[in-house]
């Protein structure tokens, strides 16, 4: 069984869905662009792995999920949280290390999470998420609800043993789980061709006895459609799918311009930017008469305003107090 390639079909989702997909992508893009600037301005401490370029993946998948569905994310996790319904204020506050952040300033970018939204955390460990998502999917099945768990991971993580074990167990138990590989062509600074001998990570699905699907991760419609099938399959108890989305990060592994390492060419980056998920989708929305140019501009302006307000909120928020340090190490409730 070789992974099948998916292209978006012609039957369109509703206007509402199309507009929500667009909104999700714009919210992620603007959030990440500003976060990058804030990091460069020294407002955000620590490491920041930005999702710019990959917006179509999180948005297309999350469109099918409710707050009761679980996801696990990666070190590049802000986009997943935004698409899952994360609000800008507590997100920026968390990146700023403030007590009003989603994790009270204790997690930061690499551990940003929100249990109420079904987001089981970004993860500083490559390959850390899939075993947890498999466990959450087990929990759903155990409790006999109809919720699913989606594990996001990269081409780099696909080489981790933990991912192999998680996918095998999810397939063995036919768990309501979807494994979404965001293949952005690089494991940190090492090109895919230098870290694995295959081109399509989804080919590995046959080794687990489950479907593997490849889709264009720069086309939100293609992701939406492929993810929809995989999630529906999981929800009805038919087991997991390995969905690979071919995508690209415009920024460096860390930060915006990163450490200036010469591991890829400017031409390559420009080539992918020509396939930009948001620009391409906006053209289609106008062609389809779903949104006008003006309406699209309004979306960008209103998201930008929300971000301005969130940054003011984060900036004015207090840092955690020294006495907060030892809170939350253990659950003291009995």
């Amino acid at each position: 069984m070789v992974a099948k390639k998916k292209n978006a079909k012609s039957n369109l989702p509703s206007q509402k869905v199309l507009q929500e997909l667009h909104m999700k992508m714009v919210r992620i893009r603007r959030f990440e662009e500003r976060a990058g600037k804030m990091m460069e301005d020294g407002k955000i401490p620590g490491a920041l792995h930005l999702y710019v370029g990959q917006e179509a993946v999180a948005s297309g998948v999350m469109q099918h999920l409710s707050n009761k569905d679980w996801i696990t994310s990666t070190h590049r996790g802000h986009g997943h949280l935004v698409a899952k319904g994360g609000e800008f204020k507590p997100m920026f506050a968390e990146l700023f290390g403030r007590s009003t952040g989603y994790c009270r300033g204790k997690g930061g970018s690499m551990h940003i999470s929100n249990m109420d939204l079904g987001m089981l955390g970004a993860n500083g460990i490559v390959g850390g998420g899939p075993p947890i998502a498999m466990g959450a999917a087990f929990s759903n099945r155990f409790k006999k609800n109809k919720n699913v768990a989606v594990a996001f991971f990269g081409d780099g993580a696909s080489n981790e043993g933990s991912v192999h074990e998680a996918i095998n167990m999810a397939s063995l138990y036919k768990l309501p789980c979807v494994f979404v590989c965001e293949n952005n062509g690089y494991g940190e600074y090492t090109a895919q061709s230098r870290h694995q001998a295959i081109v399509d990570v989804a080919d590995r699905a046959s080794g687990y006895g489950m479907p593997g699907v490849v889709c264009d991760g720069m086309d939100v419609m293609a992701v939406y459609e492929a993810a929809g099938e995989a999630i529906e399959r999981a929800r009805k108890g038919s087991g997991p799918t390995l969905l690979e989305c071919k995508t690209y990060r415009y920024y460096d592994h860390v930060g915006v311009r990163g450490m200036g390492l010469t591991y890829r060419t400017d031409e390559e980056v420009e080539e992918w930017k020509n396939k930009d998920a948001i620009e391409g989708f906006e053209k289609r929305l106008i062609q389809l008469g779903v949104m006008t140019k003006k309406k699209i501009e309004n979306v960008h302006a209103s998201v930008g305003k929300d971000i301005d307000e969130a940054i003011i909120f984060a900036n004015e928020s207090p840092y955690p107090m020294p006495e907060d340090l030892l809170d939350n190490v253990y659950n003291e409730e009995t």
Binding site: W70, T72, M115, L120, P130, P131, I132, A133, M134, G135, A136, A137, F138, S139, N140, F142, K143, A149, G161, S162, E165, A166, N168, M169, L172
Partner: peptide, 26 residues
């Protein structure tokens, strides 16, 4: 079978199962 579960020899998977299932209500 639902409550007594044989696993593959996959300790990362087994421990991950414990993490994910406990964090989500089991």
């Amino acid at each position: 079978e639902d409550r007594v579960v044989d696993t593959p020899i996959s300790e990362k998977g087994i421990m991950g199962l414990g993490v994910g299932a406990s964090a989500t209500g089991c």
